[in-house]
């Protein structure tokens, strides 16, 4: 019953076979280099831009002198899928380069709160360069070049382009570690990683996590579902409220490993396409927030309250009592109660 850790794929290892989303086995791509880019399907626009730039660079510069790759060597893959788990990239934004023989040549993980950097893009492109005699050893190749200052014209052009493209995006260039508390635990201090499957907003997500990871940190740091907020991290504010099997619960006091097998709903899961959940609409109508930081938690508690037969028909006072687990530093309380009462009548 206890899940066993998956060993991470190391540079130099032959990648296990696995299927691409269209069913093509990885093995069928042998004979040309393959870049695998893993990302959560929902990530913020700045990050989506990045992968777009990366794709464009590869499309434009990855075809001739650098590599003999066939046209579609780049794949945008769901980091929560089977393949990500097999390649040890579950839940991560990761770029992997397999060479013609299916050997992992290069891998980079974009850490939570960080953005893909020009240097990483460059290193991937450099790694595609067929070495004249020996098989490519990317870090060595890049280092040697840097050390000698002998940057080829090609490399220089690429570097400039990559940097220019990234510079064009202010949010990218200034990207600072956004959520310090969600940063991964330093490796030397890690417990064995566990493969974990979470069912979030009706979708299955596969991750490889330290058992200490709180559901809140898995949502924000690993899956980039940053709608769920971290306030106190100790069960005292309600900002991190999600639904577990339809009941409100605190994701900061839930270990991700213990949320397996439960239906997890986050604020991202309430709207249907562009149509807001009635509670979201009522919050907007009643101006039920100022800074908005507590709002996702408030809305998750409010929707659970109205789904619960014990509290559904409560008076304003009973709503206040049932909402007492969600603090609002801006004191939007009267508006929050008004919004809930409206949703209750609807």
């Amino acid at each position: 019953m206890t899940p066993q850790p998956v060993p991470a794929l190391q540079t130099g290892d032959v990648a296990p076979n696995g299927a691409l989303p269209d069913g093509t086995p990885l093995l069928a791509l042998r004979g040309r280099p393959v870049i695998l880019a893993f990302a959560p399907s929902t990530w913020n626009p700045a990050q989506a831009y990045q992968s777009e730039i990366f794709a464009r660079l590869l499309r434009e510069f990855g075809d001739d002198a650098l590599t003999n790759a066939a046209p579609e060597f780049w794949h945008a893959l769901d980091c929560r899928g089977e393949l990500a788990a097999q390649l040890g990239a579950a839940g991560q934004r990761a770029l992997l380069l397999l060479d013609e023989e299916g050997i992992l040549r290069w891998k980079t993980i974009v850490e939570p709160g960080q953005e893909l950097r020009a240097g990483q893009v460059l290193a991937a492109l450099e790694a595609l360069r067929p070495a004249p005699t020996t098989p490519p050893n990317t870090t060595a190749a890049v280092d040697t070049e840097a050390a000698t200052g002998g940057m080829s014209r090609r490399t220089f052009v690429l570097a400039t382009l990559a940097a220019a493209a990234l510079l064009a995006l202010p949010s990218v260039v200034t990207a600072a570690p956004a959520d310090i508390s969600a940063r991964p635990i330093p490796t030397e201090n890690r417990a064995a990683m566990l493969p974990i499957e979470l069912n979030i907003n009706g979708e299955k997500h596969r991750l490889e996590l330290d058992p200490r990871t709180a559901l809140l940190d898995a949502l924000r740091g690993n899956l980039h579902l940053t709608g769920t907020k971290k306030g106190c991290d100790h069960g005292q504010c309600g900002a991190c409220t999600v639904h577990l099997d339809g009941h409100s619960a605190l994701s900061c006091l839930t270990l991700a490993v213990m949320a397996q097998g439960k239906a997890i709903t986050t604020i991202e899961g309430l709207a249907k396409g562009d149509t807001l959940h009635p509670m979201q609409a009522a919050f907007i109508k009643h101006d039920a927030f100022q800074c908005g930081y507590c709002t996702p938690g408030q809305i998750m508690s409010a929707t659970a309250l109205l789904a619960d037969p014990h509290t559904r028909h409560g008076s304003a006072v009973e709503i206040r009592e049932a909402m007492s687990g969600n603090l609002c530093r801006c004191a939007a309380y009267p508006n929050i109660i008004a919004a809930i009462e409206e949703a209750q009548r609807a």
């Binding site: 409220t241 409100s248 687990g325």
Partner: peptide, 9 residues
């Protein structure tokens, strides 16, 4: 005691 969320857990 506690809050709805905590009592649910």
């Amino acid at each position: 005691g506690a809050s709805v969320q905590i009592r649910n857990m």
